[in-house]
Computed example of a mutant assay.
Amino acid sequence: MSDSERSENAQMADASQTRPRWGFTQISFVVFMVGLMGLFIALGTWQVERLAEKEALIAAVETRFDLAPQPFPASEDWDALDPQELDYARFELTGTFDNSYTVLVFTNVPDPAGRYGGVGYWVMAPFFLDDGGIVWINRGFVPQAAAADFADGGAAPQGRVTIEAVTRRPEQANSFTPEPDLAEGREWVRNPERLSAFLDDAAGPIAPVTLDRVAGEPGELPQGGETQITFPNRHLEYAGTWYLFAVITPIMLGFWLWRQRRPRNLAHEEKDN
């Protein structure tokens, strides 16, 4: 064998010794980083979609909340109503409260518009419309210490009254939501279907929404006017954060790949130095 052949073979042997060996761990890491980048992109896109939804909600609230109250739809039209389209609209209703069916819905009002806030209850009562049908009205908030005074309605309006209220779409229960306490008249969500379990079976048609009464006299309980009409909107910030992570991830992966491609003997030399 000639000297040139020996030299060439020696160089190939050196290259094979210094070439990084790829195994399951290295391949898994690359797959993980690529998957992580995809996850960050998906999360950023989801936040952009949530941004559009939140902006649509804010626009709807600003439009509906400032309109003059309208007569509430007749009960024969309730099956065709879309609670989402009625959300935050103002209505005027005439009828009679039946406060013997009052239900207290547990809540927390951290930033009240009125005097009272914190842990307490929404005072929900069925309102029998003159034109037929029942609407669950949120008469307002009472603090926990005063809840016992309103378990049977408290100082409730008597006889035929006309009220102004703001529509709210039903709150949805989840797997962690307790069942209604029918014996104590306690609930956890403002949902017409669940609230109607407290009524007699033949009570009548139930509106697919609840309504929040507007504010009354200062210091009055239940405290109306607590409909939340301001919403945090940081989805653009969140989307930017996720997309930034999506950009950083391939840069980190590229740097790691570059490190893996460096000859091992060079890495050992740097370590020895």
Rank of each mutant, 00 (worst) to 15 (best):
I58C: 04
W22G: 07
G95Y: 03
E85A: 15
L195C: 03
G95C: 09
T241L: 13
P71V: 01
A267D: 07
R259H: 10
A15E: 11
A89L: 06
S75C: 11
A13K: 05
G23R: 14
G132Y: 12
V189C: 08
R264C: 00
T96P: 06
L104T: 11
G153D: 01
G44C: 06
T241S: 11
E164I: 05
F91E: 01
M12C: 00
L86I: 08
N9K: 14
P250S: 10
G133F: 12
E92W: 00
V30K: 01
G132M: 12
I163G: 04
Q70P: 06
G224W: 03
A74I: 07
E85Q: 15
M1T: 11
E8Q: 10
V161N: 05
S16T: 05
A59H: 02
R186E: 04
V31A: 15
S196H: 01
P112A: 12
E187Y: 07
M252I: 14
L182T: 13
G224F: 04
E53C: 00
I248K: 00
E55P: 00
E76D: 15
L199G: 04
Y88L: 06
T102W: 01
V135I: 10
S16R: 14
F91M: 01
V30G: 08
A146Q: 09
A145C: 02
M12K: 12
P73L: 03
F72A: 03
W242D: 03
F255W: 12
A10Q: 12
A56K: 12
A246V: 11
G204W: 08
T18F: 04
T45Q: 12
W46T: 13
R262K: 15
G153P: 01
D82S: 15
D82N: 15
N108H: 09
P110K: 02
D66S: 14
F245Y: 13
I137N: 02
R262I: 06
R261T: 10
G120M: 04
D200M: 04
A155T: 10
Y121I: 02
T249S: 06
N108S: 11
K54G: 01
P73C: 04
A165I: 04
V166T: 14
F91Q: 02
D200Y: 04
A74F: 04
E217I: 10
N233I: 10
E269S: 09
L39D: 00
D272C: 02
G23E: 07
G153C: 01
S100I: 05
M37Y: 02
R190G: 11
D201E: 15
A56E: 10
A151V: 14
G185C: 07
P263C: 06
G95Q: 10
L195H: 03
T107S: 12
S175R: 14
L36A: 14
A80I: 10
R234H: 11
R64Q: 12
G159Q: 06
T210V: 15
W188T: 09
D14G: 01
E187F: 05
A145W: 05
V214Q: 08
N191W: 06
A80G: 06
G132K: 13
G159I: 08
I248L: 13
V109N: 09
V61F: 03
E53V: 08
S7V: 10
V48S: 09
I27N: 05
A203S: 13
V142Q: 00
F231E: 03
H235T: 04
D98R: 14
R90S: 13
N191R: 08
F141W: 10
W46G: 13
A202Q: 12
S28T: 15
L67V: 07
R194P: 01
Y101D: 11
A156Y: 06
A173K: 08
